[in-house]
């Protein structure tokens, strides 16, 4: 699985980089950024789900890779 941010929806609330700091960071204006390739490991899966569930703008997706 990978995480993805819809930058059209993101408003920089920062819940993703608060809750899942291994998967997300912020840019110079505070908008969320996916770190690296956004690949979710078993260790970061819970963080990823929290980030998705707490984004006020519903801007984060977990994408299942085939």
């Amino acid at each position: 699985m990978r995480v993805r941010i819809d930058s059209e929806k993101c408003q920089g609330h920062g819940r993703c980089y608060d809750l899942a700091p291994e998967l997300f960071g912020d840019d110079e204006e505070g908008f969320g950024q996916v770190l690296g390739d956004g690949k979710v490991t078993p260790d970061t899966e819970n963080q990823a789900r929290l980030a998705v569930a707490n984004c006020p703008e519903r801007a984060i997706e977990l994408i299942e890779e085939s």
């Binding site: 929290l50 984004c55 703008e57 519903r58």
Partner: peptide, 13 residues
């Protein structure tokens, strides 16, 4: 799971 809107929603976050 707490998708609250205390800081607003949309462009005026």
């Amino acid at each position: 799971v707490n998708r609250h809107a205390a800081f607003g929603l949309g462009i005026h976050r």
